[in-house]
Amino acid sequence: MTQLHLRHKNILDHGAAFHLSRAVLDRARPKVLHTQDYHELFWLVNGKARLYLEDQKQTLVEGDLVFMPCGTPHGLQGVGEACHIVNVIVPAGEVDALLARYPQANRYFPPSGHAPVHLHRGIRALSRLSSAAITLESAPRTTLHLEAFLLPLIAELSGDTRDMPEGIPAWLRTAVIAAEDPATLQGGAAGFVAATGKSHAHVSRSMQKHFAMTPSDYINARRMAHAARLLAGTPDTLPEIAEALGLSNMSHFHRLFRAQFDITPRRYREKNQKGVIQPV
Rank of each mutant, 00 (worst) to 15 (best):
D55W: 15
K274C: 10
H118V: 12
P265W: 01
Q208N: 10
Q56V: 12
R101L: 11
L129S: 07
H145K: 12
R266Q: 14
S131R: 14
P91M: 06
I177Y: 02
P235T: 14
L157M: 06
R101V: 11
Q77K: 05
K198G: 11
T2D: 12
R27W: 04
G78D: 05
E243W: 05
G246H: 07
A178Y: 07
L172Q: 01
N87S: 06
G197H: 00
G78H: 03
K9D: 14
A16E: 03
A189M: 05
L99P: 01
S158D: 11
H14P: 11
K48R: 15
E40V: 02
I11R: 07
L65S: 03
Y38E: 00
A175L: 04
I154E: 04
R124W: 15
H145A: 08
A221P: 01
G71H: 06
Q208S: 09
A115R: 04
L129I: 14
F18A: 02
M213F: 13
L256T: 05
S131W: 15
A170W: 02
A194N: 14
H226R: 10
E270F: 09
E243F: 08
Q104H: 13
N10I: 08
F149A: 04
Q186V: 11
V90G: 02
P30G: 06
E270N: 07
D37C: 04
H74M: 04
N249C: 08
T214H: 04
N220D: 10
A23W: 00
I241T: 02
L20T: 09
L6E: 09
G122A: 04
E147W: 08
I277W: 13
G63S: 04
E147I: 13
R101Q: 11
I11E: 01
H114R: 13
A189V: 06
P69T: 05
E137V: 10
D262N: 13
L126D: 03
Y102M: 08
I168W: 00
I168Q: 03
Y268V: 04
H254Y: 15
L144N: 12
K48Q: 08
V32C: 14
R205W: 05
T196N: 08
L44V: 04
P103Q: 01
H254L: 08
V61N: 14
